[in-house]
């Protein structure tokens, strides 16, 4: 439901082991509301992306990353669930910073998810693909060239295609990792409008280093600094009446070294 906690992170710590161990996130506890757009802001290297990837267990595929603590999504602890990990990840989609279309046609990109999860027939699949492309505001531009390689699209279109293929697996949460940073202003605006139209139905977590973007889009804001949550709260509060000196400095744009 709107405003109710959808993602509950408790005492989470993420560390990378290697030649020397690095604690990327320490003791994170934060609640992310459902059906709203939550922005994670903070300077580069503060652990924004690390936090995002912890939410759909993407760290599992890399060596030497340790996640401790608990993350509950929709009430279920995702790191101690009986559900298979691919199914968990299906419920939590991730959109990367730069679009990486699958090496296949536009149609097959969107059809990839439904094909591996539900095996629909051809006509059902056609309907899903059209619906997702429409939801991603891309249908009009590609409806006559669905069989073309996805790599032929412009970067902005590719990013919307990546959103469409994520929608096709019917996630509950959509994680966005600086999704507009590789795009030109016009494409960025299109993607922003798209995110606004999606937040009614999905819980969206957006990592961004563009403060104005966070102000435009976010309902709820988490400010991360040096691997710790400094402040989390409704966007209006964080941007106008922050509780902490550091948040205030950051949103005013005069923090030293950034």
């Amino acid at each position: 439901m709107v405003g109710e906690t959808e993602i509950e992170v408790k005492n989470m710590q993420v560390s990378y082991s290697g030649k020397r161990d690095v604690v990327a996130l320490s003791d994170i506890s934060v609640d992310i509301p459902g059906q709203q757009l939550t922005a994670i802001i903070g300077p580069s290297g503060c652990g924004k992306t690390t936090l995002l990837k912890a939410l759909n267990r993407l760290h599992d595929i890399r060596d030497g990353v340790r996640v401790t603590g608990s993350i509950r999504i929709g009430g279920k602890d995702i790191y101690h669930a009986e559900e298979p990990v691919p199914e968990l990840r299906r419920r939590v989609g991730l959109i990367a910073q730069k679009p990486y279309p699958l090496p296949a046609s536009i149609y097959d990109n969107v059809a990839f998810g439904p094909r591996i999860h539900r095996h629909p027939g051809r006509s059902a699949l056609d309907i899903i693909v059209e619906r997702c492309l429409r939801e991603a505001h891309l249908w009009g531009e590609v409806k006559d060239r669905l069989d073309d390689p996805a790599a032929d699209l412009s970067v902005g279109q590719q990013q919307r295609l990546c959103i469409a293929r994520t929608l096709a697996v019917e996630p509950e949460v959509i994680l966005c990792d600086e999704v507009t940073s590789a795009l030109d202003p016009v494409s960025s605006q299109k993607v922003e409008e798209l995110l606004l139209s999606l937040k009614e139905r999905y819980t969206i977590v957006l990592v961004t280093h563009v403060l104005r973007q966070a102000k435009r889009l976010a309902d709820y804001v988490i400010f991360l600094y040096m691997g710790e949550v400094v402040e989390a709260g409704p966007a209006e509060q964080v941007f106008t009446r922050p509780q902490h000196q550091r948040t205030w400095e950051y949103v005013q744009g005069n923090m030293a070294g950034i």
Binding site: L58, R89, R90, R91, Q97
Partner: peptide
């Protein structure tokens, strides 16, 4: 990132 996207779709 391509692998991550595929995993993120529940692959």
């Amino acid at each position: 990132q391509l692998k991550e996207s595929t995993y993120s779709m529940g692959g």
